[in-house]
Amino acid sequence: MTVVERLCAPTRDVLLARGSSGPRDHDIVSARLASQLAARLTDSLGADRRRHRLDAFAAELGPARFDAPFAWSARAARRPIGSSVAHDVAEGAMPDALSAAASEIERLCDRAQRGLTRRGALGGWLADAPRAARALCAVEASTWAERLLRLVEPTHDGSIAVGIADAWFDVPGTTITLQGRLDAALRPAAGAHLGLLRVRDGLPGARAADGLVVDALVAALAGRCPTRMVGAWPDAGLCLVVDFDDDAARRAARLLLACADALAAPSAAPSPLEAMAA
């Protein structure tokens, strides 16, 4: 598994061409690999009835140990809202990102007020938040969306889809869910190979390519198998492109298994929450 290309401030056409090329002559993620992965994950964590979510962050950094429970904030809300915003603006449904963000927040609040959201959902938090917090969320989300839109510059020819759903795969018979983070799909023409793109903050780390193949594997398991996976770090103006081939799929599976094993193994050092409880 190798990084095919490292692109500095690529234009839309370069991103589209590099992100969706690459050979593909058979199904990369065979049914055998998928079933072996599921069996090994079940061996590692099948007896554990807590819910586990494995993703590219866990593959790159090890199973995350958070010192505080998740809470919504403008920072946490910017991608879910920003994704819808990017989609609406790209589709021409809204004139600009800021208006689209305000409209999406209003829609989420409305759903929450009508009791259509589950407990802890973003809409509930927004509905209860002060006016200033909602306005801040709109700005954060529109800034996030603008970043994605400037990167891929979607047109109406359907070659680039933004604001797509993440890939999710529930391992049968366990409480393990795999998540592949996806922000755009690149397909220059009907029938052409599919490239997938995801955006992250900051700089690509030393194991950035590992995270990319994990996202690609989960996308493949969820039925959207890419030929290439593109990681974009707009803060750095960098994109990494990796081929998703047999080797990459096997490496991604091994990384997920290593995460599961690490979660299953008793930790030497307790997390801050565990330490507080003790």
Binding site: S73, A74, R75, A76, L98, A102, A129, P130, R131, A132, A133, A135, L136, C137, A138, V139, E140
Partner: peptide, 20 residues
Amino acid sequence: AGLEPASPFEDAVAALGASG
């Protein structure tokens, strides 16, 4: 975002607290 803060300090504090 188009919000004209009625009470700048209180609105800014609310925004800072919600920023994450």
